[in-house]
């Protein structure tokens, strides 16, 4: 399990952007994180991936608990426990594929065991339909192709938890559908997925858990059914706005 308890994050001027957030991600499950713009979704994801250290709270990654804030002088999460990556890994809204490498090289560079990486990538190339463009540079491919490559780069590392930040925001409907279908495959591999998304249809269909965040607080969470019968006023307003849109 990847469990965060009472996570808090503040801006340099002291404003809370994450306020005692609790969230749990199980291997093989898909958690959809929803909320309006500026509600703290990306901050929560970055804290959960431990790329940004929270100002308070605990994150338990399987058996190890990382407690925050970091002690004075500590430069990163590596100073308080084993490096959490790539067991927990993330794909960002802007994919940050390294531009000087082909998509294949992008996927293989982080692999410690090159041969195992190549074998895993070959399988992903088939599953994700990437054979036609895997040897191209990122700037020679479409947004959807880059999206698939970014997910493949994360999966080659055999993570237990995959955190995805609005990865379909720049794609058209058809490309989005393809990427979301791939997530079903990823989930079937036993990988826990946290997906920040605005695709309610996909969240309803595929999410095991839906978490709604507003102003840095988790205001409602539960099975996908909460989207149809929200209890919290903010989630009701949000869903009403989604219907209007």
């Amino acid at each position: 399990m990847l469990t965060a308890t009472s996570l808090t994050k503040k801006t340099p001027d002291g404003r809370k952007i994450l306020d005692r957030a609790d969230i749990a991600l199980e291997p093989g499950k898909l958690l959809a994180l929803l909320g309006p713009s500026g509600s703290g979704k990306t901050t929560l994801m970055r804290c959960l991936s431990m790329l940004d250290a929270p100002d308070g709270g605990d994150i338990q990654l399987d058996s190890h608990v990382y407690s925050f804030p970091l002690p004075a002088g500590a430069e990163g999460v590596e100073s308080i426990g084993p490096k959490p990556w790539p067991r927990v890994t993330a794909v960002f809204q802007q994919l940050f594929l390294w531009p000087h490498l082909t998509l294949r090289e992008n996927c293989l560079l982080p692999c410690k065991d090159r041969a195992a990486g190549e074998a895993a990538l070959e399988e992903l190339v088939k599953q994700f339909g990437m054979a036609d463009f895997i040897d191209r540079f990122p700037n020679e491919t479409s947004g959807g192709q880059r999206q698939r490559a970014a997910i493949a780069r994360a999966l080659v590392l055999n993570p237990t938890y995959l955190l995805l930040d609005e990865i379909t925001s720049a794609l058209d409907i058809e490309q989005t559908a393809k990427v979301l279908q791939l997530l079903e495959l990823v989930k079937a591999k036993g990988i826990g997925i946290l997906l920040i998304t605005h695709h309610m249809g996909f969240a309803r269909k595929a999410a095991d858990t839906v978490v709604f965040i507003d102003e840095g607080k988790i205001v409602e969470s539960g099975p996908a059914g909460i989207l149809d019968k929200p209890k919290n006023k903010r989630l009701k307003e949000f869903m009403a706005a989604v219907k209007l849109a």
């Binding site: 991936s49 993330a90 940050f96 590392l157």
Partner: peptide, 23 residues
């Protein structure tokens, strides 16, 4: 230099030495 490329390397588990020389 876009720091996000370093972030992407970090989240892929790459150490700082490899990140510097290869990215």
């Amino acid at each position: 230099f876009p720091k996000q490329y370093i972030l992407a390397a970090r989240v892929c588990g790459m150490d700082s030495h490899k990140t510097f020389w290869r990215i």
